[in-house]
Design a protein around this nucleic acid. Sequence first.
DNA 1: AGCACGCCGACT
DNA 2: GTCGGCGTGCTC
Length: 829
Amino acid sequence: MDRYAKVVVRSNTVHTDNLFTYKVPEFLIEELKEGHRVLVPFGRGNKPVEAFVFEIINYLEEDIKTKEIVDVLDEEPIFRSEELDLVKWMKNRYLCTYIDCINLIYPKGYKLNNYKVATISDDLKKLNDTQLKEFIINLDEKYQQVIELIEKNKGKVKVEKLKFIPNINNILDRMNKNNIISLHWEYKDHKNEKKVCYLALTMEDEEIDEYVKANKINLGSKQKEIINFLKYNKDVEINDAMEILNVSKKSITSLHDKKLITLRLEDYYRNPESIYTSSYKEINLNEEQRYAINKITSEMFDENKKPYMIHGVTGSGKTEVYMEVIDYALNQGLDSIVLVPEIALTPQTIDRFKNRFGDIVGVFHSQLSEGQKHDVYKAIKAGKVRILIGARSALFAPFNSLGVIIIDEFHETSYKSEKNPKFSAIEVAKYMALKKDVSLVLGSATPSIDEYYKAKQDEYKLIEIKSRANKKPLPKIEVVDMKNELNVGNKSIFSFRLQQEIKEAIKNKNQVILFLNRRGYASFVSCRKCGYVFQCDNCDISLTYHKRNNVGRCHYCGYEKEIPKECPDCGSTYVKPFGVGTQKIEEELKDIFEDIKVLRMDKDTTSKKGSLEEILNKFKNQEAQVLIGTQMLSKGLDFENVTLVGILSADMILNFPDFKSFETTFQLVTQVSGRAGRSDKEGIVILQTYDTDHYAIRRAINYDYEGFFDDEIKIRKVFGYAPFNNMISVVISGANENLVKQNAQNMYDSIIYLLQNRGINNFEFILGPNPCSISKINQNYRWQILFKDDNIEINLLKGIIKYICITKRDVVFNKDVNVSIDINPNNVL
DNA sequence: AGCACGCCGACT
DNA sequence: GTCGGCGTGCTC
């Protein structure tokens, strides 16, 4: 019986984002499985490309011509059927391509390179040397050049290496047609796996000297050293040997040539103990923690269990709960995934897991190279890594028996991807939990409003932890009204109250954390006379002033320019920086408190590898009294000597033009406050704001999450925001402003037309087209249309957007504009 | 997208 | 008739 395979072809465009049907050749019928990686001829030139088998069928659904699969690329399928389902689900949910999803869940451990080659045609090969020479001499000069190059390259040359010849494609075409050369595609399948080389002697220790003598082998002193070393050390890694003995690779290969040693290649990852033994440590868990652990572990093998949401105040010991749950799972033979918001910011968490569980803890994040990712995947498949800590992409790790997924600080925006596929790790985790019966645990001190609403609707089992693990109360938050500070003549960024508390903390040898949501020195530079504001040349963004080298820097594209003394517009010298950034805080702090030691933690000081750890260690070792930082500070840092937290301006986040800004304010205030008083010392928080009456501030200072939730959910309901509606953002961008605008309008008109055809005449759920809040990034103008699934079924809405933006893309949009679809985006800038 | 192919004008 | 360049349309 005939067999056919429906495959997804590796080609990075939406135009080929379909399932293609290929005939399965006779010799592969037995072997080929769904999830296999195969090689198929694609396009008119039958270019060999990598493809992924999604389905195997034994009849053709319609009368289409098919080509045959060339070969299967790996012994085993790389995807299980549940992973294929996940790809299909994500593609549909986030309106992205198959390949976007495949790239996400399968690190490119293998690289398939294809290239076109030219060889002498079979006809010419039949000629003898003199005939050939005569034939060539009569050819066009350019033809001769090509043949020369082919012969120089041992009868075969890559077409891409001939590109320096003008009009080469035409020349090759004609030579091909005239049967002078033949053109065809070749490929190479690279395995991108890291291997380690081990050395060992080929014979017993005693025999070796005799063998050397008997065969009269000359050994250099270095070579003798290696042999002696190997007598006493078994299985030496080649790099170690080279380093310890200070020998070159040449000496080692030469010993190998003399058949005295063997070289053995093995997979890169270390061999940790693969059998897990629980290292019992007395941990004092409080009743609430124990309840949470019991609840989750007792239901681990229940079918159709709901996901859990742990709402625990800052410092409530959620990590201990996670670790106990994971420990239980391990003892039951189940593996775990722990998602953290940003791997770089959580060295403390990783340390805690490694201390407790040892070598079976793996780390995974997007900054790893493709090869490194592949190594981690292999270790997971081999059962050598059983707990994986990572950013959102760690969710797709190929565990054989996954039992637990934990998402820590799940309210963080980093769980939503900004690039294709623009997935939400929480949504995907829920999908996976449902399909695989995994225990999913979301934890946060400040749950996002939409998920908490769902918890109240019984989609989650809500577990509350209301007391801190150290039994200390949460630090008191004191509000300072900055309007009054101005009235009493304090123009400084620091209120008198905050200054007083800083003094007090330093006197008592305690530490201080100051939080400000903006890096740099000043938020913008402008001319006091004419109001000119320095802007980025590439983006619609004002430049942030960085005092050290007197430049304005764009925080979107990195553009920098020197700030002149005179206004480029009116020529006046009243050019001044406005607003405050972390740099300015540092400067002003040093003005007020002489001899104070300050550390600054923001994107500017932590961009170098290892610099974050350095800053954290310095602060931990009390080398500085004050740590100034941005958002980064809110993410789970634990310093026992911090007694004072200063929030310098809560308004900055509050006034952000986004519907989630109140939620973000509440979360940041709560999280940052939670950094104080984490050990035996009690903490205090000073919060400075101009808007003392705002409910986000009032609720936050009382740690009243429920109250904030009640206030906020009413507003969300009235305006139809999440969780009551989904929001879909379509951004059209391009270098030509008019074209972008026109295309946005074109899309709007097409959508309206389709909706009217379906009898829908109320378009209030569509906003736009409008220029984006940030109307230009990197020389690209941006227009936006926003949709809410108000009065329209989400799948109908998505179907229409998909039809316009993907299926009919070429008709609706110019090829020079870029169309980006985001389902429930983090922000709508 | 990326590739092959076909059409057309220029030039010998 | 040949060369060089560009526009077009399809991909199992």
